[in-house]
Design a protein around this nucleic acid. Sequence first.
DNA 1: CCTGTGACCGGTA
DNA 2: ATACCGGCCACAG
Length: 103
Amino acid sequence: VITSELKDSILQTLASIPCGKVATYGQIAKLSGNPGYSRYVGTVLKDLPLDSTIPWHRVINSRGCISFAKDSDGYQRQLSLLAKEGITPEKGRISLKTYGWIL
DNA sequence: CCTGTGACCGGTA
DNA sequence: ATACCGGCCACAG
């Protein structure tokens, strides 16, 4: 598969987020060995093929919120997928202390 | 080359 | 707690 090492490392880290846990864009960037690439993590997720097995829904921003607009389609999908894993936001915020992959 | 665009982040007021 | 700001970086025009 022809992909950049950068993108690859990010995808690998994303794939390793355990079920029932969440990580922030920044954490994924740093963990993959690319501190400061949080924005790019979002770009990678956006371009994921629909058949991808990457758990994109387990990624939230540093504030503990879903990065989609509350009224958007993606917001509801992510919320639904997280619920299936027992992750339920309170006041729109997901506690990283409780569900955070990295504490 | 330069500019604008994001599923972002941390500091400051 | 919220609001704003500058920095961040790959990528498409």
